[in-house]
Write a protein that binds this DNA or RNA. Structure first.
Length: 218
DNA sequence: GCCAACGTTGGC
DNA sequence: GCCAACGTTGGC
């Protein structure tokens, strides 16, 4: 991914060329992430069948290649949304069941749905004895850390827009769903919130927000 | 730790 | 296919 900031003014021919290249890279970037999701994970240690199910964004960052299998999804709606994910799609990383729930970063889907190995592992808290290898019940995707934000966007903060800019968001409407689809207007608004209110500038969101701002001007 | 909301199970 | 009972999620 190109993380260069886009230039706005065009003076010389070469500058113009550079701008065009930057435009292309951002457009390609947005083209390659047609869908946006929200993935919930618990950042605080909690035992389930004797196993700690904690997985924070820090834990993801600590993984080799900052990459992990998103397993343990045991809800049919959530599973179906997982199965709709494509390589290159992005998702908000949401911390749930903790002191201050909220979005703490962005991950990228690097491998599309494959049978979740934990369903066949009797030692896993997600073991499902009913599931057959020939016809697996549950699926996982591979995710890679895209951005860890300096500041989280808390659920409390998001709730301020529950009936306005973020109306219809599954986070409020279907609060128990651990894998959610995020619509384009919701994604755009949340990224604007990140840049404006939290004053957090990171490569991905800066690119996206610049793109959005220029889109508005056009 | 409580409990509302909501998903799942299973008898009929 | 209905729905009561039960289990789980996750904010507070």
């Amino acid at each position: 991914m190109t993380k260069r900031k886009r230039t706005i003014s065009t003076v010389s021919q070469s500058k113009q060329k550079e701008t065009k290249e930057n435009n292309n890279s951002v457009e390609q970037e947005l083209e390659s992430c047609r869908q946006f999701f929200l993935l919930k994970s618990e950042p605080e240690s909690r035992l389930e069948k004797g196993v700690d199910v904690r997985f924070s964004i820090q834990d993801l960052e600590n993984e080799p290649d900052q990459s992990a299998t998103w397993d343990g999804v045991r809800n049919y709606q959530a599973r179906n949304i997982l199965k709709s994910m494509k390589v290159g799609d992005l998702a908000f990383f949401y911390h749930s069941n903790c002191k201050e729930p909220g979005i703490v970063g962005v991950v990228r889907i690097t491998k599309e749905a494959f049978p979740d190995p934990t369903q066949f592992d009797p030692k896993s808290p997600y073991y499902d004895p009913k599931s057959r290898k020939e016809s697996p019940s549950w699926f996982a995707v591979q995710v890679k850390l895209e951005e860890r934000w300096n500041k989280k966007i808390s659920l409390n903060q998001l709730k301020n827009y529950q009936t306005k800019q973020l109306s219809g968001m599954d986070l409020f409407k279907r609060s128990r769903l651990s894998v959610q689809k995020v619509l384009e207007y919701q994604r755009n608004f949340i990224l604007e919130l990140l840049n404006n209110e939290n004053n957090t500038k990171t490569a991905f969101t800066t690119n996206t927000t610049n793109y959005l701002e220029e889109q508005k001007q056009e």
